[in-house]
Computed example of a mutant assay.
Amino acid sequence: MTLAQDIGQWAGRMVQVVVGGESLKTRRAADRRRALYHQAFGLRPDATCLLDQLAQANGRLVTNQEALRTIGRRGQVVDLRPRSPEVCMIDIRQNVGADAVETVRECSWRLTPLGRLRVMRAQGVVFSAAQIGIDR
């Protein structure tokens, strides 16, 4: 097989191996969370990246530029043609819930308290009535 044939074979899916960056332990933890989000909500890989970024932000706004840097990064492989954050947000709202994400000034997002609760439940966190402020 020639080099041209090799390149042509991979032309449909362009990926690049990323060297450096976050520690291996941090990347593996993020991969485990993304797998849980995929199982719990049925999200596509790009949307799981954005949902994980929103969950890790702890109520802080995530801008469109921050989302663009994260979407497509999965482990040590980067997809050079990821979906846009807006398309990923549609996927998140359809599968996690329309009330799970708040849009701020049309270019930033954050999880609502209900969205954070759903994400934590997908991660396997068990809540008692006393923990969430419901007295019975």
Rank of each mutant, 00 (worst) to 15 (best):
R73Q: 05
R74A: 09
R74F: 14
R74Y: 15
R74V: 14
R74H: 15
G75Y: 04
G75N: 02
G75K: 04
Q76L: 13
V77Q: 08
V77T: 08
V77F: 10
V77D: 02
V78D: 02
V78E: 07
V78A: 13
D79N: 13
L80T: 14
L80K: 15
L80D: 07
R81D: 08
R81N: 13
P82T: 00
S84F: 00
P85A: 06
P85T: 05
P85C: 10
P85M: 01
P85Q: 01
E86W: 01
E86N: 06
E86G: 06
E86D: 03
V87C: 02
V87F: 02
C88E: 06
M89I: 05
M89G: 01
M89Q: 01
I90K: 09
I90L: 10
I90F: 04
I90W: 02
I92E: 07
I92D: 02
R93Y: 05
Q94T: 13
Q94S: 12
Q94H: 13
Q94V: 13
N95W: 09
N95H: 09
V96N: 08
V96Q: 03
G97F: 11
G97T: 13
G97Q: 05
G97M: 04
G97W: 11
A98N: 11
A98C: 01
A98F: 11
A98S: 06
A98E: 10
D99Q: 00
D99T: 02
D99C: 00
A100P: 00
V101M: 07
V101H: 03
E102R: 03
T103A: 12
V104E: 04
R105C: 14
R105D: 15
R105Q: 15
E106D: 02
C107E: 04
C107N: 09
C107F: 02
C107W: 01
S108Y: 03
W109E: 01
R110T: 14
R110N: 13
T112W: 04
T112H: 14
P113Y: 08
P113C: 06
P113A: 09
L114R: 08
L114V: 09
G115A: 09
G115K: 05
R116Y: 07
R116T: 12
L117R: 14
R118H: 06
R118I: 02
R118Y: 10
R118L: 09
R118N: 09
V119Q: 12
V119S: 08
V119I: 11
M120N: 10
M120P: 00
M120R: 04
R121W: 10
R121G: 11
A122K: 15
Q123H: 15
Q123T: 15
Q123S: 15
Q123K: 15
G124K: 07
G124A: 14
G124P: 12
V126S: 13
V126K: 15
V126Q: 12
F127T: 08
F127N: 07
A129P: 03
A129W: 14
A129K: 12
A129E: 09
